[in-house]
Amino acid sequence: MPTGSVQHFLHGSISSNDTLQALLHLLRGLCEDAARGSIPFLDQEISYTIQLATGNSSMSLRARRSLMYEGYPWLLTYYGHTDSADSSRLVAVRTCVQAGTSDELPKFLSCIGFKKDFELVSKGHVFKKGDMRVIISKFYNPVKDPTHPDGYQPLANEYLVEMSAVSPKFCEVLAREMHTFAEQLKPLVYFEKFIPESL
């Protein structure tokens, strides 16, 4: 029985606004739908964890929904452990399960034992290129701050740049395609195969 897809991913970061503008410009040229450019987003994101009292097991889920468009569904995501078995792979790989849900999601998760870990607001741009997505996001405190030009107080000045692609199982061709694309975006952004367990 399939229990999710495999997400291939690479992470990078940029810190200056000039670099951001140059990267947006470059991605507009390299990705699909150049006339329209990127897809902007402003999302509320909450991380939930369930755990056993023995401390042996825990599991986290991410819930996010758009703050730009009212009535859009919540998106529930589970990421498995990053697979570190094969270090020769060009990208990091993890199990990924996603489902759109109705508005009751926070109450539902709370009733079945999930506790809120943290909440933040993410704002940024999504680009598509074939099966790949490039997401550039900045993270904010979820409390509205009208004094700040973005409407929220930033948690950091850096932007996270995530390149990802999902397929039913690990795909070497897709990994190579992502690696090649990541090379094209240098030196604006340097992508890394981020494996949290190795820290």
Binding site: T3, L76, V97, A99, G100, T101, L105, F108
Partner: peptide, 10 residues
């Protein structure tokens, strides 16, 4: 909770 059928995979 109404969800996409991929919810089963959770």
């Amino acid at each position: 909770l109404i969800a996409d059928s991929s919810f089963d995979q959770f």
